[in-house]
Design a protein around this nucleic acid. Structure first.
Lengths: 297, 297
DNA sequence: GCGGAAGCATAAAATCTCCGTATGAAATTT
DNA sequence: AAATTTCATACGGAGATTTTATGCTTCCGC
């Protein structure tokens, strides 16, 4: 049995004629006859009584017609359903993010997106960059937003936004507005723990300038960005954090930015996806919105 | 798209593997691959991400799986449903009957049949034999029970029961228990109207004995069997009716049977069906019961 | 009632689809 | 790095589908 055969059957049933059905389906009459014969043999029951010039559907045909139409309609709707899926921006978007973008960037973007597509909801697991990327690798996440790359040929990174690392001090700390790199090294410093993306990027940039952490006076190591901020405010030392994370404090002047002469500490945020995976439409639409919305910043 | 292809798809989805699906379905892996390719092209969406040694169903695949299983199960149930139909003795049986069998024979048989198959109900339109046969011809009835044939090569008759026509008189009428044919002709007679099957059979038998109605003294023509009985009881004349129709009256001796020496007036009842038409199971089962139950009478 | 038209069945040939074998490419494991 | 696993592709043959041609029956008009 075959959907095609069911279509032929239902056409005959409606038209009360093999010939008319063959016209409707753009087939020849013998083809139509043959398929009905096949169906009758398979179901072991006559479907149409051939009365010479006319035909009469049997009771079995009446029963089959309803069932067959059911199947045909379901089959036809498949294409529509899968087509709609391509336009369908609904459901839960699970997007992993590392600490800085997850805390200070994504919530705002997600809120804006949800204003545009109210049918979506968000799930935003936040961990370190490395863990996020690992989950993308292990198919546990479709999308990760990270501030640090972990080289792996299975991951596609696309950078979408420049971030800046700024040196921060307590407002009361007696330091120039702009200092030299050498002066920075002489200051007491507080940092995130090892493994943090922000710390990793900071170290990378400093080492690029020929400075090792070992040459610096580390007065505190803290497990979260907020803790580091509190430590800086308390005067334990200066620190280097993402501008994104301290925008508020700089505005309210509870933290002070110290420029380094002739140096800009840039880093990038990345969207991480696994190679060869197909993103559902909602994710793609979100990414589009996301890329467009963050480029300007 | 094809049910077969949907089956292949669902097997892959369950097995999370093209190869395992090919084993399950007794196909080769390239065949399975090819069908999925066809589906993906038809639906214009990827169903499985090929990740090298493993695969991952896409969101579209998840949606399709539910729909596909639905179709497959419906398709599989078709055979069962049509199979059940063959054992299914339910629904309304519409059986046309002419006056005598319809009035005096069918109700009892139908009651017995319904005792055995409580799921059936009956619809028993009663008209003249000719009209019943015509309705069978015009596909308005599947089955007719008639006491008189109407020759037509589209109708199959099968006789199932002998009936007897008996001469009836009022109990008070002074007539011998058994008379000769000549004596019968001399008696006043009442009859059904022309067109009645009983009258037709009566005339046929009498003419077979060389007697024409024109030689008889017709004292009344009535439109129903019951009316004829009343007329006979009232002494308007004798009449010839089916034994079936007067069994009660003979028993209660409100009518008297008069035998004709050396003559038996037999007639037959017939089941009339249209050639080439397929009877639903319930009708066939009823016919079987019917034939078995009436042969003895 | 007879000839022709209409409708379904059957037979044979052409075409198409489906499936298997052989082989390749990529990823993972050893 | 070699071996293994898994999916993709190429190609040929078997079988199914379709068409053309034709036959048979019924039904309609004359």
């Amino acid at each position: 049995m075959d959907i095609h055969q069911l279509r032929i059957f239902t056409s005959i049933y409606r038209n009360r004629s093999f010939t008319k059905a063959s016209v409707e389906l753009c087939l020849t009459q013998p083809t139509v006859s043959d398929h009905i014969k096949t169906l009758e043999e398979e179901f072991e029951c006559r479907l149409f009584d051939r009365l010479g010039r006319t035909i009469m559907p049997t009771k079995a045909a009446g029963v089959l017609y309803v069932q067959a139409m059911d199947i045909i309609e379901k089959a036809d709707s498949l294409k529509t359903i899968l087509g709609e899926l391509k336009k369908d921006v609904t459901g839960e978007l699970v997007i992993g993010a590392s600490t800085i973008p997850g805390t200070y960037l994504m919530p705002g973007i997600m809120a804006a997106f949800q204003g545009k597509y109210p049918a979506v909801s968000f799930n935003l697991p936040i961990s370190g960059s490395g863990e996020i990327i690992n989950k993308v690798l292990r198919y546990e996440l479709l999308l990760g937003i990270v501030g640090s790359r972990l080289d792996n040929d299975q991951i596609n990174y696309s950078s979408f936004m420049d971030d800046e690392l700024v040196v921060l001090a307590a407002p009361f700390l007696v330091v120039e507005e702009e200092i030299t790199l050498e002066e920075l090294v002489s200051l007491p410093i507080v940092l995130r723990e090892e493994g943090s993306g922000t710390r990793k990027e900071t170290v990378k940039i400093l080492e690029g300038k020929g400075i090792s952490l070992k040459n610096m006076k580390i007065t505190g190591i803290f497990g979260s960005t907020e803790a580091v901020k509190q430590a800086v405010k308390a005067g334990i030392g200066v620190s280097i954090l993402s501008r994104l994370a301290v925008a508020d404090e700089l505005e309210r002047k509870t933290l002070r930015e110290i420029k380094i002469r002739g140096i800009e500490m840039k880093r990038k945020f990345y969207v991480a996806t696994r190679k060869r995976r197909t993103l559902p439409t909602a994710y793609n639409v979100f990414l589009e919105h996301f890329m467009a919305g963050t480029k300007i910043i």
